[in-house]
Design a protein around this nucleic acid. Structure first.
Lengths: 204, 204
DNA sequence: CTGTACCGATACGGCCGAGTACCGGTACAG
DNA sequence: CTGTACCGGTACTCGGCCGTATCGGTACAG
């Protein structure tokens, strides 16, 4: 974002300026996200990340100017497409598979969302990175699945429950630890889909 | 909880030891909870609470030993029974009224739950106070409403959706700000009840 | 072989918040 | 009227973390 736009013949030299390999960078990102999950955003320190990755605080500050920028970069690097390739030809089976897939990483993502939920009020860049990394890809993928169900005629277009499927899936996912202390696992989510989501959509 | 158990004739004098009236105490509690909602738990300072209530930090530390104990006391004082008196003789109408009632204070309670969600990992007393103040009363009241519906025969006992009603109500309530940036209002929640909760329970 | 520039380590300045100590004012008891 | 004890205000210590500066080591270029 700073000087990577150099188009001259020194671009190779410019990319050689940092000896941080992409693998090393991912170690930094994994470390800071893990510490956020464990202790919360405010309790995470740059010293702690440096110590746990055996690098120097200087190294971190050479790459990223401030702590929120560093965390935002870690979130953006963590962004990935969810629910990819879920297309079984049946909305009910697609939703069950979403539930199974969500159960796998629900613990990590829920912790992150919980820990950063209030930090985003103080840094707009952090807020946008969080949305792009953890919220929008999942919503979009879920809406794709629902749209295909509508196109196949399984659910009538404009069905009132359609608008609430993302909210109730992520709502149940996120609120489970608060209610019972346990994180939502795949089994719990699949049963939720069968007991609530499918009946609400008019699918048996 | 400390010396209020004195049974001697000096109990009047003992209760007179503190010149903090219950109304004054509630000002402290309201101030700290409001600041937590605005800035998060870690950003709230005892100096800030003292300044906003025009009292001295000494006064706060004379009554409560540490910051988490002070916050826990504020939460316990804020505990109240929710959904009280909701009993219309119809489960559908009861749930609609729950949605309307929840929309009124969802903003304040959701902010509190969000702000304290990660602070509870570092203080067990705080965690229990939060559960007793904001989670358990609402769950219990909701289950009472559901139980009456079962007793009236509106829903079969053991209906699979029954277990998920509290989770999906609070889930949708809490996750709305994350998804759209807006807090859930009464209208949104009532439509959710009609589009999802009632069909899932087999009520029209 | 020599220079360059990045890395890791350490130390430091500045700031801020938790919790403590002290002091004058004042309400209430007797 | 006099004493007691609590309240509010201020100043203080202590510790922690952000961000910066500095220095020796080392990998790579030419």
């Amino acid at each position: 974002m700073t000087s990577q736009a150099a188009d001259g013949p020194d671009m190779v030299a410019a990319s050689r300026r940092s000896k941080i390999t992409p693998e090393r960078e991912r170690e930094f990102f994994d470390a800071v996200l893990e510490q956020i999950r464990e202790c919360g955003y405010d309790s995470v320190t740059m010293d702690g990340v440096a110590a746990s990755t055996r690098c120097s605080k200087s190294t971190l500050y050479r790459q990223w100017k401030t702590k929120p920028q560093f965390v935002a970069a870690a979130l953006r690097a963590n962004r990935r497409v969810r629910f990819v390739g879920i297309d079984n030809g049946s909305l009910a089976e697609d939703l069950r598979e979403v539930a199974r897939a969500a159960g796998d990483w629900s613990r990590k993502d829920t912790k992150l969302l919980q820990a950063l939920g209030h930090a985003v009020h103080s840094d707009a860049e952090l807020a946008q990175a969080l949305r792009e990394a953890l919220v929008e890809p999942e919503i979009a993928a879920l809406q794709d699945i629902l749209r295909r169900g509508v196109e196949r005629g399984e659910v009538a277009e404009g069905h009132p429950a359609l608008d609430y499927v993302p909210a109730m899936m992520f709502g149940v996912l996120r609120v489970r630890p608060v209610l019972t202390g346990e994180y939502a696992d795949a089994d719990y989510l699949v049963r939720f889909v069968e007991a609530v989501a499918l009946p609400a959509l008019g699918l048996t």
